[in-house]
Nucleic acid binder design. Sequence first.
DNA 1: GTAAGTAGTTACCTATAAGTAAGTAATTTG
DNA 2: CAAATTACTTACTTATAGGTAACTACTTAC
Lengths: 113, 113
Amino acid sequence: MGQKEDVCRYRLMVSRDALEVVQGKWRLPIIISLTHGNKRFGEIQRDISDISPKMLSQELKALEMNKIINRTLYDSMPVTVEYSLTPLRLSMEKMVDELINWGMHFRKEVVGT
Amino acid sequence: MGQKEDVCRYRLMVSRDALEVVQGKWRLPIIISLTHGNKRFGEIQRDISDISPKMLSQELKALEMNKIINRTLYDSMPVTVEYSLTPLRLSMEKMVDELINWGMHFRKEVVGT
DNA sequence: GTAAGTAGTTACCTATAAGTAAGTAATTTG
DNA sequence: CAAATTACTTACTTATAGGTAACTACTTAC
């Protein structure tokens, strides 16, 4: 008894997991910025013009912890740090595509009305 | 000039639109509860055992405004209200499936490690 | 008239997300 | 030696999300 409900609860749990990785104001912008090539802190900051260094630092850490991006420190002078995407980010492609697809549909049907 | 950036900004905008509809603690649980049939306020509340009437009422209103659910008032005594899904909810199927798929993958690769 | 069931609302409080402004440390350039 | 560039950090504040408890209004059953 309750097997259907278990499946349902599991689906809820993992969809919440997925949402937590991409939700928030800055995570998708950062991910998308890095999709156009590896970048340094300052470059991402210039890409996303209204993000503060505090938020960028905080969100980069969160994305690194979730294994979406890599942080590589180069021992050059001025010290440079390069951020790049991981294979896990590449596995998000379909999900992000479907968010975009449905977002377009939603905007046509509801927002644009 | 900037056509690529316009496309990028548009994708960001619509993916944020999509996220806003499903994000939060209770929206997916409510949507999924109604997937198993039209339900009344109290039934949803019993389905999602730890939701308060305030949050349920608030989130049902948000989902109704976004045209994900319908609210139908029946003039019976005791007044009953039935909530049901709209065609727009049905169009979310792929997106929700991909959230679940990637969430499973993420949990295997990161959470479960 | 009291309790229980219908579907919520209201006021208040706490927790989390995000913003603002300034500071740090190391090095390079003029 | 002062200014600029690298990549941040810290302290403080504001805004939004969510939680708690009690209350409303109507009707039926006992």
